[in-house]
């Protein structure tokens, strides 16, 4: 869907925004061409799905990656003169490399992959290959269940945002360009019969007047208590805090990271600027943006919400203040 709509010109101005020059890296892979022959078809598909935001969101990407890796492991045959714990890791690495070339890994994917590598290295060399593979696949299933599925259920329960409670409430979904991910949420909630109000970032100062609680999703929680999430989250949290509305972050502990961050510049993801062109609009003046010198489009994916704006974090183990995130992170790593 995102085939490059512009013909390559021999000499082109650098359209990278100087402040984020360190984040551009190689352009995202658009085709399968040049992918290593080791890469499993499931992973090939997954990479493109993630690239085109068919699979989007920290948890979904994590689950999809683990499921794809399960298929990789199932199809894996240890080459002669090699042991599974040693070789499987390198085999996975080429899969991961491909995924990164499609879209940078999410924090949750990084955490899950690290866990999987540890699991693989723990496999006893003497174990029979088929048994080891089954063990690993079961471990992956357990991981998904434990860290994501059950965690989500627990968070849901703790957050008492379950619809079954029959409390009457209204949800205001604040969405943003260019992905409009909120539409899916709004649609899902509306289909359940919940009263939904939908607005975009520009209306935040208006809709906050009616809100009594703000729930935020997370891409990751940093070890200094800051929330790293879809760009625009910080605006919502700030507006809510100013209006004395509690801000609650729902976040599985798989999304905790030992990383710290102070601004949205050092660590971030810059998506292809073409995504900012309005879809389905052929007359948009922006289509010519590449021909306009000195014009740059910035399509930032994430921003960092200061810990002061966050009242509470809910994860599968309970409620905690954002300052407790590093402790929980240590616990979840050591467990």
């Amino acid at each position: 869907a995102h085939a490059a709509p512009f013909p390559e010109e021999p000499k082109r101005e650098n359209k990278n925004v100087a402040l984020f020059d360190h984040l551009y890296g190689n352009p995202r892979r658009t085709t399968l061409a040049g992918a290593s022959k080791d890469v499993h078809p499931a992973v090939l598909a997954l990479g493109l799905q993630m690239r085109n935001y068919v699979i989007c969101g920290s948890s979904a990407r994590c689950v999809a990656t683990m499921l794809a890796f399960k298929r990789v492991i199932e199809a894996y045959v240890t080459p002669p003169q090699n042991s599974l714990p040693r070789h499987l890791t390198t085999h996975l690495s080429s899969q991961i490399e491909y995924l990164v070339s499609c879209r940078p890994l999410s924090i949750s994917m990084g955490n899950a992959i690290r866990w999987l590598k540890v699991k693989i290295s723990e496999v006893d060399v003497s174990t029979e290959e088929s048994a080891a593979k089954t063990d690993l696949c079961n471990a992956i299933d357990n991981f998904i269940t434990e860290k994501i599925t059950v965690a989500d259920q627990v968070i849901e329960k703790e957050g008492s945002i379950r619809y079954e409670m029959a409390t009457k409430f209204k949800v205001i979904v604040v969405d943003s360009r260019p992905l409009f991910e909120g539409k899916n949420l709004a649609r899902a909630l509306a289909d359940l019969g919940i009263e939904v109000q939908y607005s975009l970032t520009h209306g935040i100062s208006h809709v906050i007047k009616d809100a009594t609680k703000v729930f935020l999703g997370a891409h990751a929680m940093m070890s200094n208590g800051r929330l790293y999430s879809r760009v625009g989250t910080a605006l919502v949290a700030m507006t809510a805090r100013e209006a004395d509305v509690p801000v609650i972050v729902c976040c599985e502990s798989i999304k905790y990271t030992e990383r710290v961050a102070l601004d949205s510049f050092v660590h971030n993801e810059v998506a292809p600027p073409e995504e900012l062109l309005i879809q389905g609009e052929t007359s948009s003046p922006l289509l010519k943006w590449l021909d306009v010198p000195n014009l740059q489009l910035l399509n930032l994916m994430y921003d960092l919400t200061p810990a002061e704006y966050i009242t509470m974090v809910i994860d599968e183990s309970g409620y905690l203040p954002p300052s407790s995130v590093p402790f929980m992170q240590r616990l979840s790593v050591n467990s």
Binding site: G232, L235, L276, Q296
Partner: peptide, 24 residues
């Protein structure tokens, strides 16, 4: 004239990125 034609670098952003960039 546009600003870009006057030699000014213009970075177009969606509204949501305002907070992320504000510190600079």
């Amino acid at each position: 004239k546009t600003l870009t034609a006057a030699g000014i670098t213009v970075v177009l952003i969606p509204d949501s990125a305002v907070f992320a960039l504000m510190s600079r």
